[in-house]
Design a protein around this nucleic acid. Sequence first.
DNA 1: CGAGGTTGGAAAAACGATTGGGCACGACCT
DNA 2: AGGTCGTGCCCAATCGTTTTTCCAACCTCG
Lengths: 343, 343
Amino acid sequence: MSQKVSIKDVAARAGVSVTTVSHVLNEVPGKRITDATRDRVRRAAGELGYSPSSVARNLRLQRSQMLALISDEIATTPYAGQMILGAQEAASKAGWLLMLVNTGSDSEFEAAEIQALRQRQVDGFLYATMYHREVTLPEAIAGVPTVLLDARSSDRTLPSVVPDEVAGGRVATEELIRHGHSKIGFLNNADDIPATHGRLKGYRAALEDAGLTYDERLVIARPSDTEGGLQGARQLLGATDRPTALFCFNDRMAMGAYHAAGELGLRIPQDLSVVGFDNQELIADGLRPGLTTVALPHYEMGAWAVEALIARIEGQDSEGPQHAALTCPLVIRNSVDRPAPIS
Amino acid sequence: MSQKVSIKDVAARAGVSVTTVSHVLNEVPGKRITDATRDRVRRAAGELGYSPSSVARNLRLQRSQMLALISDEIATTPYAGQMILGAQEAASKAGWLLMLVNTGSDSEFEAAEIQALRQRQVDGFLYATMYHREVTLPEAIAGVPTVLLDARSSDRTLPSVVPDEVAGGRVATEELIRHGHSKIGFLNNADDIPATHGRLKGYRAALEDAGLTYDERLVIARPSDTEGGLQGARQLLGATDRPTALFCFNDRMAMGAYHAAGELGLRIPQDLSVVGFDNQELIADGLRPGLTTVALPHYEMGAWAVEALIARIEGQDSEGPQHAALTCPLVIRNSVDRPAPIS
DNA sequence: CGAGGTTGGAAAAACGATTGGGCACGACCT
DNA sequence: AGGTCGTGCCCAATCGTTTTTCCAACCTCG
């Protein structure tokens, strides 16, 4: 029922023209309308439960107040719910609507979806990836304002927001150093992605700052899953001169490290300290003892991207393309302690 | 650029009226237009890269071809990515667009979002919950076709789709029985929700079918997280006459059971078999050994709900409100084996 | 040859908003 | 009294479609 009342009905009830109703309700500046009339209009609108049709408005204004977050996988992974949430809330706060589209890796399907969205006048795109990496944008997207989320384009032409991997690697390592560890293993990922290099860089920087020498035998690369973590940890911890602490590329690998420690009879954190990355609640909170880890700023990245996109659409992005690297906060649980006295 | 070409441009280039263009492109039945004209129109449209504005069409047609999936938490949990995916793909296949909105538990915010969606002429709602439960719909939604997802309304007036909890509990238990277990513990959830009762019912049914007697001392209720699982498993396994297998309400509790087994020196699956529920990849696949569990049919539920909703919108829902309970398939990994010979 | 039927297409009215340009009307000025 | 100006509001065009109605021209047939 509330669907049936249009601006005409309001005009009729208030005894004015639709023009006036529009002026009043939108508070168009520079229009001269008496307070009495304004009152009548507003009351009429209220009584009728009028709410303007955004379809009509969009047609007239040639915009939709809609954003689309398009991504390879995101909506279907446990990874980035927070990213979506941050984007949603930022959009909603600014009066925009956010569409979610995930296209898998099928670029034909992707193009079709983008086309469908363009038809619907989507005003801007958020192009997100499941993990921080470089992407090349689909052609179909060209011409519509776009911001990259957790990704960077090969040509640095678009605004983008990513986690500060280096600082993340640093803070994780520092947490271990702070507890007195000097022999710290790094169980890295084997893929050639920004996170791999960034976290390593942070690890090395933290060591250097602390006056510790970097020992490449303490760094090992494996596939970034539980199995890889298990394998890698076995190797690092099996050495005669084993590290007293492990910084793991992600929580899944840390889970593997837990298994390895179990096999070797090492207790965490008494015999071995472990720090993860990603803060995947399900794991980090589920492991015993709880895993100290570094959180990815998914929520903040989502919000940042939406704000940047809206600014860009509304032409307020004074300076050229911007890039943000958001900090990854440390989440402390119970997997870090001082190293055991030398046995 | 492709945004600027409207039906008028096509008409001009083809040397016909917009009426004709519309008729041709929409293949309106019963209109007499020569093949030559059709050709010219289609060619013109192709050359111009014309694609109709759905905003304009929606205004004229008074519908939007948009669905909204509104939910308390769903998009932000690792839980139901598959549910969203199923819904997305079903919608996209039918030529509809799906909006995702999650409202948290703030019902005021929820009402506002629903209002915003109605303004945009959303044609139907999917109302989803994070876990299977009963809900009462917000007022604001009234009057728009709605289907419940993973939820049921107190009055059974709306179509809904949920997992078949009973069958799920049964299949989990049967898997243990099949391996020769007769003393099977059930680590249940303590909340008063359909899953709690349904899975227990399935557990009992499976026992009964196998001619095993139900022993209430083997069933214990705890909060459904890792900690609860740990506590519960400790208690069940600490008994003199401990069960040889554990059916856990969910994977998180199963993770707790793994910890308990570790404490007690019980190896899985040699000394203790475990079956979980939910098939949360992160856990089920990350645990050693891999956890045999029961999967929730999230993808299928999402798809089912969208199809039901579209049918309802298009007035093809011949019969009254329908309810579906979709089966939960068993996912076999390595946590179940035959019971150890009596020691 | 004229009535009536077919054919192929166009004109115009919606859908519900926004907005630039007027148009009355009274007050004020000279 | 006649011109000017400010006030308060409305007309009508517009956005890009769909759809109902209508029309001209041609054909057919007695």
